[in-house]
Amino acid sequence: MFMGEFQHSVDEKGRMIIPAKFRDALGTTFVMTRGLDQCLFVYPMSEWAIMEQKLKSLSLMKSDARAFTRFFFSGAVECELDKQGRVNIPSNLREHAKIEKDCVVIGVATRVEVWSKEAWEAYSRQSEDSYNEIAEKLVDLDFDL
């Protein structure tokens, strides 16, 4: 399980150090793709296989399903860690997440997310204001803290 928040930076070649706490669970090969909320999603191969199966099960007759599947898979890239624990983030993914230098790497249970520092701070401020409302809505989904 991935959890925690880590401050990192991307070097001039587009490389970022993956937090040591995440490396073992991600493995040496993993998948990075465009995520929601203007971040990147990073999946270990086992979780990627689960996501792949879920997306394959969506109906091709529904335009939203086709659009999301295209968005998700077209941005996906198989990544490998180098000897220093770094991953190269392709330029199209850096552009999607607006990552230029400073970034935040967070654990979200089954995946890792990579955010530009500015986007994460803005998202955190906005979400903090509605945290109680979100928690109340989760009760409707039979979730209790």
Rank of each mutant, 00 (worst) to 15 (best):
M3H: 13
L58S: 12
A135V: 14
S63M: 12
R15F: 08
E100G: 03
T33L: 06
M45V: 15
E80D: 01
K117V: 09
E47K: 05
A25C: 06
D144S: 10
D144K: 14
F143N: 03
I18W: 02
L81H: 10
R70K: 13
I50H: 10
V104D: 01
A20D: 03
L93T: 06
L93N: 01
L36Y: 04
Q7K: 14
I106S: 02
E95Q: 12
D102G: 15
F41C: 02
L138I: 03
S57R: 15
F6D: 02
V104W: 01
S91H: 04
K62G: 02
V105A: 03
A122S: 15
D37P: 04
Q38T: 14
V112S: 01
Y131G: 00
G107L: 08
A49G: 12
E80R: 13
M1S: 09
S91K: 11
Q126G: 03
V77C: 05
K54C: 08
V87C: 08
L93M: 06
E100N: 12
L40C: 07
G4T: 14
S59Y: 10
S124C: 05
M3N: 12
S59E: 05
M51T: 09
F68V: 11
V87K: 06
V42N: 00
I134F: 14
I99K: 11
K13V: 12
M51V: 11
